[in-house]
């Protein structure tokens, strides 16, 4: 595969895996954040939001140490026989999941909060159990939140740069994602390639924002 398409495919793969993992992990987390009355709630909520305000270099720096053989994550993967995660695709997924966490959890949490208690109480009077209520009432009603969470998480991971630059090691087909490939081309004065990739990113970004606003409009119309 030509190196540019390789970078595109790799970025797509990274964004997709990150989004899927975040939807699976983020849904119970968002549910708890939305419904719990625990005193820990705001503490955990702030932790989830933290990657939003931290410079990517802070995440990259700590990840580099944590993933190394003497770090907590590196020690764990080493003892499991997986080996260190830095400079590997799974390592990038770990980094991206942390980096994009607030972008997925926050919209889902908002959607759960907007539900209120009433639909769930009504369902309870109709003898629906808690699990059934979650899957048949809460999930379908919170669909707009899931949609924007997934789109934002995906797009944000595509746009990731600093963390990948620090823990990736620029390996073609493994960690050389689009943003790093562009940076590399610009540094090497290969502007033709840089133009192709950057132009593509602009179109992609524009499409994402447009789709987001169109979807939001449609969903609001359905909700009304």
């Amino acid at each position: 595969m030509n190196p540019e398409w390789q970078a595109v495919w790799l970025t797509f793969k990274l964004a997709l895996s990150t989004t899927l993992i975040l939807l699976v992990l983020g849904t119970p987390l968002a549910w708890w954040l939305a419904r719990s009355v625990s005193t820990w709630k705001e503490l955990v909520g702030s932790l989830v939001t933290l990657p939003l305000v931290l410079p990517p270099t802070v995440l990259g720096f700590y990840l580099l140490i944590a993933l190394g053989p003497e770090g907590p994550i590196g020690g764990l993967t080493e003892s499991l026989g997986i080996g260190p995660l830095a400079f590997t695709f799974p390592g990038l997924v770990v980094g991206s999941v942390i980096y994009s966490l607030p972008f997925v959890v926050q919209p889902i949490r908002n959607a759960f909060e907007a539900l209120g208690d009433r639909p769930l109480e009504v369902a309870a009077t109709l003898r629906s159990g808690p699990i059934e209520r979650f899957f048949r009432i809460a999930l379908p009603l919170a669909r707009p939140g899931f949609l924007s969470g997934a789109i934002l998480g995906f797009a944000h991971t595509v746009g990731e740069f600093g963390v990948v630059l620090m823990i990736g090691g620029n390996i073609p087909g493994e960690t050389r994602v689009l943003s790093v490939a562009i940076y590399d081309h610009v540094e090497a004065l290969e502007w033709r390639q840089a133009h192709w990739l950057s132009g593509g990113m602009v179109l992609f970004g524009f499409a994402v924002v447009l789709i987001m606003s169109l979807l939001e409009k449609r969903l609001r119309r359905i909700g009304a």
Partner: peptide, 20 residues
């Protein structure tokens, strides 16, 4: 098995953090 640092300073840092 090569990992590419953005410059030689980053290459050194990859080794000093134990990642290479």
């Amino acid at each position: 098995r090569l990992v590419i640092g953005e410059n030689v300073g980053q290459a050194r840092q990859f080794v000093s953090t134990g990642n290479a």
